[in-house]
């Protein structure tokens, strides 16, 4: 069994070489599902460290992009040893960049952090119409709907999406968080969301608070 603390530390320090060599050695040892879940957990704890370092200003957006890629690469490598089993999920989240907006980097950073925090994330991609959010939220019985946008035109699309959740009777069943460069407290009120953030790590903490 690999040194889990070392893996968490390497992930937190974004030491790709150390993370990948630890994971490769681990996979070569024909690991059990139980041990693999422990490895996954150690990676997730490393991502929590990344979030803390972002909060403190040590890391910034580029580091979160890098962390997201590193986590994805790690999970893809570990996945075969899980043989279909997955770690326990803390909640279901439907996420997407709203209609008219084609940006996805911020959304993807948030997705990586949310997944590493244990959320099951259904990513609808970019330029997502309100009805797609509504249909997916209904289908998976989502706890949270996350609306992302960069362009100022996303404000109307965010509002239209929340209005659609309302008119379909879903609004009381889901929490809505909006994120992106354009969001403010005023916009949050206008849209009718429950929370807003320009900081992906903070956003995930808000979501964790909702599913406790």
């Amino acid at each position: 069994m690999a040194d889990l603390n070392l893996l968490t530390k390497a992930m937190g320090e974004l030491d790709e070489d150390q993370v990948m060599s630890t994971i490769s050695d681990f996979m070569a040892s024909n690991p059990s599902k139980e041990d693999t879940l422990k490895m996954m957990n150690a990676c997730q704890q490393g991502m929590a460290v990344v979030g803390d370092l972002f909060d403190s200003g040590e890391y910034f957006v580029g580091d979160l992009i890098y962390a997201g890629e590193l986590l994805t690469k790690t999970i893809e490598t570990i996945k075969p040893a899980l043989k279909g089993e997955s770690s326990a999920k803390v909640g279901k989240m439907v996420l997407g960049t709203v209609q008219g907006d084609l940006h996805d980097i911020g959304k993807n950073i948030f997705k990586s952090l949310a997944e590493s925090a244990g959320f099951e994330v259904y990513d609808l991609g970019i330029d997502t119409p309100p009805e797609d959010f509504v249909n997916k939220a209904k289908e998976v019985k989502a706890d949270i709907v996350g609306l992302s946008g960069i362009l100022t035109l996303a404000s109307e699309s965010m509002k239209n999406t929340v209005d659609s959740l309302n008119s379909d009777g879903l609004r009381d069943k889901v929490k809505v968080i909006i994120g992106g460069n354009l969001v403010t407290s005023d916009l949050c009120s206008f849209v009718g969301a429950d929370a807003f953030t320009t900081n992906a790590a903070e956003g995930v903490k808000i979501c964790q608070g909702w599913v406790k």
Binding site: L14, E16, G62, D63, I65, Y66, E69, I105
Partner: peptide, 11 residues
């Protein structure tokens, strides 16, 4: 681009 440059800054 933003994503690839972010990776390059580290790699």
């Amino acid at each position: 681009g933003m994503k690839a440059l972010s990776m390059d800054l580290r790699r």
